[in-house]
Design a binder for these strands. Structure first.
Lengths: 142, 142
DNA sequence: TCTTGACCTAGAGTGTACTCTAGGTTGTAT
DNA sequence: ATACAACCTAGAGTACACTCTAGGTCAAGA
């Protein structure tokens, strides 16, 4: 089973739009997608895997230019393994810093949410007191 | 000590550019920065705190439109505490999903790096073998 | 035969978030 | 008096990553 998929199905599977798939190919992010005699693309399993990896890189905010570099040296073969590793290590570093920052920010946001909750509670309590006063007043009216 | 800072120093302290500070104000992300009689801005401690929080939101990819909403309802005062909390909770949710995804991606990238390392090791070993063969050949030449 | 639908290319258009420019004012130092 | 530095506004320009359009090909079904 080496079923090759048309672009539409690849879009469905990967979540990238057809436009984006063609755009990425134009940018040189994907080498040599197989074509039918009529020019239509057929994507292999390997292509899908590569696209998944591209998605990993993009979803973690690697700039497209860097992905182009990565794709280019990957195409150049074995001799660039070291450069590829270094590129990924740089990204890994960026990423783990970003992760740390996000965690800190998340904590700040959680604190703010907690603060709002306590404000809401106070507000709620204040209303209850008003209610009680009102019912006391009603009682005294009787 | 209620020293109010000119825009230049705020830029230096916050890491936002002077342009961005003015731009954010135009967008309504910051209410009522105090002005000198000549129209120059003076930022208070509170302003700086608010800017820091804006930075938190932006650095975690909250869209500017959402930040505008948040700023707007914050200006409206107490009555919007609940909506503010809900807005932040939504962001918190988005954020923790993003965090998870990043962690997964990080793992994938680490695996790829490890893979490259092992390729490099093999390559290195292969060279060593070639070296040994060469020195053996040299020896046999003697 | 004609229509439909999936595909193709090259290039134009869009949304987001800045970032910069032009032209002007003000306050201090020489 | 004049030069300068820091500030102001309104609006134009830019970078990035898509996203869409126009105009066309091709194969299968009514």
């Amino acid at each position: 089973m080496d079923k090759e998929l048309p672009i539409q199905q690849v879009a469905a599977k990967t979540g990238l739009s057809i436009h984006t798939l063609r755009y990425y190919e134009r940018l040189g992010l994907m080498a040599s997608i197989h074509r039918l005699p009529n020019g239509h693309r057929r994507y292999s399993e390997d292509d899908l895997e590569w696209i998944d990896f591209l998605k990993c890189l993009r979803s973690t905010a690697m700039p497209v230019a860097e992905m182009q570099r990565f794709a280019e040296i990957t195409r150049q073969g074995e001799s660039t393994v070291r450069e590829r590793r270094e590129l990924l290590e740089a990204h890994q570093h960026t990423l783990s810093l970003a992760l740390q920052e996000m965690q800190q920010t998340l904590a700040i946001i959680e604190a703010k949410i907690a603060h709002y909750r306590s404000l809401e509670r106070k507000h709620h309590d204040a209303e209850k007191i008003v209610d009680e006063q009102q019912s006391t007043m009603k009682e005294s009216k009787r």
